[in-house]
Design a binder for these strands. Structure first.
Length: 496
RNA sequence: GGCGCUAUGGUGCAACGGUUAGCACGCGGCCCUUUCAAGGCUGAAAUACGGGUUCGAUUCCCGUUAGCGCUACCA
C-alpha cells in the first residue's frame, strides 16, 4: 500500500508558555517535511504536567501556528484526555517484567545536585579499575525488593509509581536522520519513571504511546530530546513496537549563545506577528536556521521551500537567532511579491491603527494598491504604513521636528511655499509631470535649486523628510490635499 | 560530577581529501539620487588549539578547550 509509505509526523507543544521561535521552527520543519512528502501532520498538545500546564495558553499556540501558516491535518489531540491509554501501557510494561513498582517518595529522587550518590562513587573507585566506561546509574532500591517487602508496601497503601527496568548491560541503538546511527550504553540509562504515583504518565511514556497509536513514522523535534531518545526506544521495544525514524534538529540560541529566553527580547512568534513581520518572511528566515539547500539559495518563497526541503540538509550545530537578518527578509517580502499579496496585510495594519477607510477596499481599490506600492520600497515592517507613511492615509499627522529643522530652516521657505501653492492650485490636470513643471517653474523664477523646494514641500505634505519621490506622492495625495496641506504648513510657519 | 552532541568571518549557511575557502545579513566605501530606502559595484572580516593519517586536510582519527543538551514522579 502506498498510503502506508506516506510519512506521518507530528508537532507536540506543551502549553507551559506561548509558541516560541524554537518551537515554531520545529513545527515548520515538520510541516515542510509533510508537505514535501505528501504526508500527514498531526498536532498533539502534551499537557500531562498538571502543575505547569496552563490550558488558556493552548489557544494562543494554535493562533500562532495558523499565523505561521503551519496547518495540521489531524488534531489537536490532548494527552490529558488520553490518560487511560498510558496507564494501560504502563501496566502492560509492568506485567511483562519490563517495569517495576517504585514506592519511593518523589522527593527522594528529585535531588538538586546532579552528582552521583556518594557510596556509588566510592565503591566504584576502589576495586575494579577495569570496569566499563559508562557510569553506573544509581538504581532505585525498589528494583530489587523481595516479594514480601513489595506485598508489605502494597498493604500499607504506599502510593506506587512504575519505573522502567532498564537492562544493566547491552546497548540501545536507533537511527537519526540528522545525527546518524546512535549507540547508547544501557548502563548509562537510569530507571526512569513511566507512571507517576498519582497515576499520571510522564512525558517519556505518553510520547511513545501516542506516537505508536498515531502511527508516527518520523519524529522531528529539538535536539534537546536526543539524550532521551534511547529511553523511548526502550519503551517501544517493551511495548513490542518498532521505533520510527528520528530527526533531531539543532537548537536556536540567543545572541549570548544561551537558550532563548525573555531576556533576549521577543521570543514568541506572536510578538513578531504584532511587530509587523510577514508570515512568509518569518517562514523563510526560520527555515534557513539549521537547514540549507546545499547551494547558496536564501530567498525562497514557501512553495520552493516545500519543494526543496529535505532532512538531509539539516545541520547539527545550534544557531543564533539574528533579528537583523529577519528584518532583511521582511523588507524583501514587503517589496518583491506582487503588490496584491501584501495589500491585505496593510489593510489589517491600518485597521489596527484606526486609519482604515472602507472606501479603499471598494471603488478606490486601485488607489490603495498603488499607494501601498509607492510606499513599500521604503518599509521594513508593516507598522511603517501607519508610522512614517501615516500622512498617506489621514490628514491627522504632525511635522517631524528633525525634518522641520533641516528643510524649513531657510527664511525664504514660507514665500517659496506660498508661490508653489498658487502654481499647484492653478494646475488643471493633476499629474506627475504637471506638478514637476509647476515646482521647477517656481524654483527657477525664485532663483533657488529645485531640491530646496522639493525637500521643503515634502515636509509640508507628509510631515517628514522620509517619503517616496515627491511628485508621485503628490499624485497619490490628490490636488486638494496637497494644496490644503501647503496652506496648513504656511499657517504653521507664520505662527512660529 | 556523569553521559552525549557540536565547533568555518560578528551572525546564518556553502565547500562532504585538492577552491585565490563561496554566498547572504550586518558593517565601511563608491555609483545611482529629490529625502530615505531599494538596487549595482566594492572593502574589512573565518576554518578554536594541539597531535596524527595522507602526496595533500576546513573535510578523516585522537586529545585539549569552549559551548550546548540530558542526567526530575518537567516536557
Amino acid at each position: 500500500m502506498s498510503s502506508a509509505q506516506k510519512p506521518r509526523v507530528r508537532f507536540a507543544p506543551s502549553p507551559t508558555g506561548y509558541l516560541h521561535v524554537g518551537g515554531a521552527r520545529t513545527a515548520l520543519f515538520n510541516w515542510l517535511f509533510a508537505k514535501h512528502e505528501g504526508g500527514t501532520l498531526i498536532l498533539r498538545v502534551e499537557d500531562t504536567d498538571v502543575e505547569r500546564n496552563k490550558p488558556e495558553l493552548v489557544d494562543g499556540i494554535l493562533v500562532a501556528l495558523k499565523w505561521l501558516g503551519v496547518e495540521w491535518d489531524e488534531g489537536p489531540f490532548f494527552q490529558s484526555q488520553r490518560g487511560e491509554m498510558y496507564r494501560a501501557a504502563a501496566e502492560k510494561i509492568f506485567a511483562s517484567g519490563f517495569g517495576y513498582a517504585c514506592y519511593c517518595k518523589p522527593a527522594a529522587y528529585a535531588g538538586g545536585d546532579y552528582s552521583a550518590p556518594k557510596d556509588e562513587v566510592e565503591s566504584s573507585s576502589e576495586g575494579d579499575d577495569e570496569g566499563p566506561k559508562s557510569a553506573k546509574m544509581a538504581a532505585c532500591p525498589c528494583r530489587d525488593m523481595s516479594a514480601d517487602e513489595l506485598a508489605a508496601k502494597q498493604k500499607e497503601g504506599v502510593p506506587r509509581a512504575i519505573r522502567f527496568k532498564t537492562p544493566r548491560t547491552g546497548v540501545t541503538t536507533f537511527e537519526d536522520a540528522v545525527f546518524g546511527h546512535r549507540d547508547v550504553q544501557n548502563a548509562d540509562i537510569e530507571d526512569f519513571v513511566l507512571l507517576r504515583s498519582s497515576g499520571v504518565p510522564t512525558y517519556q511514556l505518553s510520547v511513545v504511546v501516542d506516537d505508536i497509536d498515531m502511527r508516527i513514522s518520523h519524529i522531528i523535534r529539538g535536539a534537546d530530546h536526543l539524550s532521551n531518545t534511547p529511553k523511548q526506544v526502550l519503551i517501544y521495544r517493551a511495548l513490542g513496537a518498532e521505533p520510527p525514524i528520528f530527526a533531531h534538529v539543532p537548537l536556536i540560541l540567543g545572541a549570548d549563545r544561551t537558550r532563548l529566553s525573555k531576556r533576549h527580547g521577543a521570543t514568541s512568534v506572536g510578538s513578531y506577528a504584532d511587530e509587523g513581520f510577514l508570515p512568509e518572511a518569518f517562514r523563510n528566515f526560520l527555515a534557513l536556521l539549521g537547514w540549507s539547500t546545499g547551494d547558496d539559495s536564501e530567498f525562497m518563497r514557501t512553495p520552493e521551500l516545500i519543494e526543496r526541503f529535505s532532512l538531509s540538509g539539516v545541520s547539527r550545530t545550534n544557531a543564533i537567532f539574528d533579528r537583523a537578518k529577519l528584518e532583511w527578509y521582511n523588507t524583501q517580502y514587503l517589496q518583491k511579491p506582487p503588490v496584491e499579496e501584501i495589500v491585505p496585510f496593510v489593510e489589517a495594519e491600518l485597521k489596527k491603527a484606526g486609519l482604515w477607510q472602507d472606501a479603499w477596499g471598494t471603488s478606490e481599490h486601485a488607489w490603495f494598491a498603488k499607494t501601498v506600492d509607492l510606499i513599500r520600497p521604503r518599509t521594513r515592517l508593516l507598522g511603517d504604513f501607519a508610522g512614517w507613511a501615516r500622512a498617506f492615509f489621514t490628514d491627522d499627522f504632525s511635522y517631524d521636528q528633525e525634518a522641520v529643522d533641516k528643510f524649513w530652516k531657510d527664511e525664504k521657505i514660507p514665500g517659496l511655499l506660498a508661490k508653489l501653492t498658487d502654481a499647484l492650485a492653478a494646475i488643471p490636470d493633476w499629474n506627475h509631470d504637471a506638478c514637476d513643471a509647476a515646482l521647477r517653474g517656481v524654483a527657477a523664477a525664485e532663483g533657488v535649486k529645485a531640491g530646496v523646494l522639493i525637500n521643503a514641500t515634502r515636509v509640508a505634505i507628509v510631515g517628514r523628510a522620509v517619503a517616496p519621490p515627491l511628485f508621485d506622492t503628490m499624485v497619490a495625495l490628490s490636488k486638494d490635499r496637497v494644496v490644503g496641506r501647503l496652506r496648513r504648513a504656511a499657517a504653521f510657519l507664520a505662527a512660529r
